[in-house]
Write a protein that binds this DNA or RNA. Sequence first.
RNA 1: CGGGGCGUAGCGUAGCCCGGUAUCGCGCCUGCUUUGGGAGCAGGAGGUCGCCGGUUCGAAUCCGGCCGCCCCGACCA
Length: 490
Amino acid sequence: MADDKKLTTRADDFSAWYNEVVLRAELADYSPVKGSMVIRPNGYGIWERMQRALDDMFKATGHQNAYFPLLIPESFLKKEAQHVEGFAPEVAVVTHGGGKKLEEPLIIRPTSETIIYHMFAKWVQSYRDLPLLINQWANVVRWEMRTRLFLRTLEFLWQEGHTAHATHDEAEEETRRMLGVYRDFMENWMAMPVITGLKTESEKFAGALRTYSCEAMMQDNKALQAGTSHNLGQNFAKAFELKFQTEKGDEAFAWNTSWGVSTRMVGGLVMTHGDDNGLRVPPRLAPIEVVIVPIWKADEERVRMVEAAHNLRNELVAWTGRGATDRLRVHIDARVGIKPGAKYYEWELRGIPLRLELGPKDLEKQSVFSARRDTREKAAIPMAGVAASVAALLERIQNDMFAAAKARQEANSIRTAMTYEKFKEIMAGDGAFVYAGWNGDPAVEARVKEETKATIRCIPDAEFRSAVAPATCMVTGEPAKFEVIWAKAY
RNA sequence: CGGGGCGUAGCGUAGCCCGGUAUCGCGCCUGCUUUGGGAGCAGGAGGUCGCCGGUUCGAAUCCGGCCGCCCCGACCA
């Protein structure tokens, strides 16, 4: 009999492992429509925490939420040349409604630039109306050929920020600011280190002047573009006549930015932190941070232990050391008829950061037995001051998870002098983030993609660049214009 | 759309070559005993064998057609 309780290991088949974790941790399930998925409570709970954290950050940087409709006139998409070229192939079109053929087909938004800037044009008259800083939480549809749970589905949830500014520099500042917000979130909440940088022309958003991204390294050494921030220049403003009167009295087109992150981040979380026992969720994003498993033998003992578990939870939840509203999120697993070991496996699969076992021996010693999900380290925690100890441990787990992911990213980054031959070997093998010189020629980029499947993930921001900039292009040997990061990507 | 794999109970599967109404495990329900790393025993429920057609006395099995899903590729957050 095959032991179907064990997950496929990451080393055996990373892709199969990923699917198994997502399905068995009950993050998501396949829906009847090919390529789309149902996000189950365990997955949605993580997304809700992501939303809350990001939403707070957006508000703190002056943005307001609004909501724009799902359906957009088809003609809108065609108003910006690059935009239509980029999105037309993957747009779903509604041709019938109310039992009749529509005069003008409607598209289901693949992103909302067109309708949002159409509306902005109505709302903005004066420089006094700027900047306009809007975010929306929404679903979008992109008809992808090949889909994967969370990473690429026909429909996905995201937020898209859209702003209008009076000057290029203000828009650029906003673009960079929101990229920084994303990085902050990914590193401090997801415990997922990222590299920020500029996308090349061939990888930038359709219709943007410049696209910046956060690139994260998954455990198979492939890159995940986890978030993008675009300086749209005046491209959409011109297409949608988003004009304003300047202080001097003349007319000018606004400068726009857009930026987004999606439920794809949940997939990134799995591939950054998961191990062969399942998911590992960083405490700050875990809907349940602590699971208490009471242990008993006789029935009388069960009553006592479950009561002790409730007392423990009450003490943990009552603790306000993280602030009055940020209480410890604690669950008691008092299910009868399931042995403790089975419960441990289940909560480990689901990635709950900390398990507390509470049995007669612990009660006697006035302590509780803890097991960290990330390191599987176990230790007794004294009951006296248990809430503060647990909170401190959770914080340590959060930090250690980030440090471990960061160390892995660095261990699999290559900054030494690189020949194209050696590069091909690396990409055919384990893969890596390869920092190398590039002459700036899109033809070189296309050739490397063709030959190795690797692409330029970004031209990294200054802090990520090598101490000594590469002098020559890895492929042609010509003088390098940029240091870039090459990797295979999701 | 190209390549590969697969459709049999909620999940994973055997049976198919060589036709006789479906096997096993997990899960689920009931009861009892259990509970410090995936419990044991007993009983029980659950199936248009992906769909349509053909061959045959008889099809999960043979033949033809169709559909769907997963993985790899082209395309993409």
